[in-house]
C-alpha cells in the first residue's frame, strides 16, 4: 500500500528537535540510592532495556525518579521526558497521564482535560506503528514500578 507522503515530513515529525535532544542528553539518567519502587522493562524485539527508580512518599507522591538503560532515540527520549514530567506527581495523576499518553500514541480517543505538554513531542510515532512500543516501554515500566510488579515488563 502506498502512503500519501512522498517526503520526509513524518520523519521530521518523529525525530523532532526535542526528541533528539532528550535522546542525546537524557535527563535524570542514573539510579536512586534506595528507591522505594523500581521496575525493569525490555523490548525483546529491539533489545531496548530500561530501569526506572522511584521514591514515593506516604502520600503517594513521587518525590524523586531516575532511569537508566539503552535503546533507540524514541525509547530513551520517551523515558527522559517521562521522568522529567512525573516528579512531584501523585500516583493518581500518573494513572491519568498513562491513559492519556497511550491514547495519544496509539491514535485512540483523546482523554479530555489533560494537557500532555512536552510529552506531545512523542506524537510523531503515531505514523510509525512499529515504533509505538519504543515510546510506550517507559510508561509500562513506570506502571509496573508503582504497582511493585517484580516481573520484568516486556512490550510483547
Amino acid at each position: 500500500m502506498e502512503s500519501m507522503s512522498t517526503s520526509g515530513d513524518e520523519l521530521r515529525d518523529l525525530y523532532r528537535e526535542l526528541i533528539l535532544d532528550h535522546a542525546r542528553n537524557p535527563r535524570h539518567f542514573g539510579r536512586l540510592e534506595n528507591p522505594s519502587h523500581q521496575a525493569e522493562g525490555i523490548n525483546p524485539l529491539c533489545g531496548d532495556k530500561l530501569k526506572i527508580y522511584l521514591d514515593i512518599d506516604s502520600k503517594n507522591t513521587i518525590t524523586d525518579a531516575c532511569f537508566e538503560g539503552s535503546g533507540c532515540a524514541i525509547s530513551v527520549a520517551s523515558a527522559s521526558l517521562l521522568v522529567e514530567t512525573i516528579i512531584n506527581f501523585n500516583t493518581g495523576q500518573v494513572a491519568k497521564y498513562f491513559s492519556a499518553i497511550i491514547a495519544s500514541l496509539t491514535n485512540t480517543e483523546k482523554q479530555a482535560g489533560i494537557d500532555l505538554g512536552k510529552l506531545k513531542a512523542l506524537e510523531g510515532v503515531k505514523e510509525f506503528p512499529t515504533r509505538v512500543k519504543c515510546a510506550t516501554l517507559a510508561w509500562h515500566t513506570l506502571n509496573a514500578a508503582i504497582k511493585k510488579q517484580h516481573r520484568t515488563v516486556t512490550t510483547e
Binding site: 520526509g8 513524518e10 520523519l11 518523529l14 525525530y15 529491539c46 535503546g71 533507540c72 532515540a73 524514541i74 510509525f128 512499529t130 515504533r131 519504543c134
Partner: peptide, 11 residues
C-alpha cells in the same frame, strides 16, 4: 540506534 536507522530507511 539501528532501529532509528531502520525507521528512516523504511520511510
Amino acid at each position: 540506534h539501528p532501529h532509528d536507522i531502520g525507521t528512516i530507511l523504511d520511510n
